[in-house]
Design a protein around this nucleic acid. Structure first.
Lengths: 117, 117
DNA sequence: ACAATATATCGTAATATTGCAATATATTAA
DNA sequence: TTAATATATTGCAATATTACGATATATTGT
């Protein structure tokens, strides 16, 4: 290997395309049951505050707060300050991106499904 | 908290719904740029062997092999022994699942988008 | 049988993630 | 101002993931 300054343990994001990294970030954020549960709860109630999720899921408040932060950083949810609480909801833009991504993937694969091994 | 035998570090999968865990497993498998790159390469060439991906991506053979294993365990790809090599291709079933999941998500959200905070 | 080819597994080092108690911050209500 | 409410941050312990060199395994070709 001739790469310089590569550390073990961390992923080699620098060597992949920006779009691939962005897609991976979105999917990684959803790659945890608690965060899927949060998204599905948000889908059901439309908007909610952190405390509602704490009541709903078997996780402590700091843990929920951390998961919300990750979902927010990935762009999957957005939060609006509402008095002493923060109102969270799903960001449709991210969902649209993922929809498009998988629809495109499916379209391309089904077109040549018979060529699979 | 009154849960018994909870270890630190690991996610509390036991306390979420099976379907939520399954969805998370699929998305977690795609939540890494190398695995997205593998899927996209497979989409382009339709089928390939491990060695082809090793040539394509900036990762060593054991690392590619490990990523292929994770994609295979999640059900995203399938491998068929073909002489001395293994022929990999995308499993359309998993892609269909994800397609359906996000289309459904998008449909439900866009129906009440105005209610977002 | 032996060499070549292709992939998987093992062992290891390092970073990343998960989860929570304790604490900090920030707004509202009295 | 003080108490109450809601969320974020810090610090820490433990597991999980990432990556790769070395090695094992398994099939093909000679």
């Amino acid at each position: 290997m001739q790469y310089i300054n590569i550390t073990m343990g961390a992923s080699k994001s620098d060597f992949f395309k920006a779009k691939q990294n962005n897609t991976a970030i979105l999917l990684k954020a959803l790659g945890h049951p608690a965060r899927i549960a949060i998204i599905e709860y948000l889908l059901k109630v439309n908007t909610c505050i952190c405390g509602d999720i704490v009541k709903e899921l078997p996780l402590a408040q700091p843990t929920i707060s951390q998961h919300l932060k990750e979902l927010k950083n990935a762009g999957l949810i957005k939060g609006t300050i509402e008095g002493t609480a923060i109102c969270y909801c799903i960001d449709i833009t991210a969902v649209e991106k993922l929809c498009t991504y998988f629809n495109n993937l499916h379209k391309k694969i089904s077109a040549k499904q018979d060529e699979c091994c």
